[in-house]
């Protein structure tokens, strides 16, 4: 038992000591919810995405202020915040998860790795389990994470008024591009 305790202790402390944390506050996440009948492009970019990746454990978190999504059209940005995302009530969207195939990716070595990140995505106050394929590129102290996936608006209780129901896509395709630096 003593041995086990010792092992557990060592494991815990090595984790803490040699944790390889990569971090950014200027990651980029964009989305597109344009439908074939949309009179204009419904897309936005957020350049204030915060993210931390622990390359040893594979833990990966993302967080972004909803109000920092920039639209081409100011009015659309207002409607996005006020009516769709209710950003006063739900100011942040976040993802908490883990690289599920960490064994396939040798993040200690330079290279590009295909990974799957699974965890909990919280948008508009609703949390769902998601699993997202993406790539992680390691180059020295820099890690670039890229992914593209789709979410259903209804899964996050984001409602579209019936008058414009066919002018906004029911799904949003999300693109992540984050450059993290070793801390």
């Amino acid at each position: 038992m003593k041995k086990l305790l010792f092992v557990a202790f060592i494991l815990g402390s090595t984790n803490a000591l040699f944790a390889q944390n990569y971090m950014t506050r200027t990651g980029k996440i964009s989305f597109n919810a344009t439908s074939p009948k949309s009179p204009e492009k419904i897309e936005a970019v957020n350049n204030e995405v915060a993210s931390i990746l622990n390359s040893k454990t594979g833990d990966f978190v993302f967080q972004l202020p909803v109000k920092s999504f920039k639209f081409e059209r100011e009015l659309m940005q207002q409607h996005f915040n006020e009516n769709y995302m209710e950003s006063d009530k739900f100011p942040k969207s976040e993802f908490k998860g883990k690289i599920s195939n960490l064994a396939d990716a040798n993040l200690g070595k330079d290279g590009t790795y295909n990974v799957t990140v699974a965890g909990k995505l919280s948008i508009h106050g609703v949390t769902n389990d998601v699993s997202v394929p993406g790539t992680i590129t390691v180059k020295g102290k820099d890690v670039t994470a890229k992914a593209k996936f789709t979410i259903k608006m209804a899964d996050y209780k984001i409602t579209v008024p019936t008058v414009v129901a066919d002018k906004v896509s029911k799904e949003a395709s999300i693109t992540i591009d984050a450059a993290l630096i070793q801390k």
Partner: peptide, 13 residues
């Protein structure tokens, strides 16, 4: 420690 890593990272942010 092991389980709460993502949580503690989020807390950091």
């Amino acid at each position: 420690f092991a389980q709460g890593d993502a949580d503690s990272m989020m807390k950091m942010l």
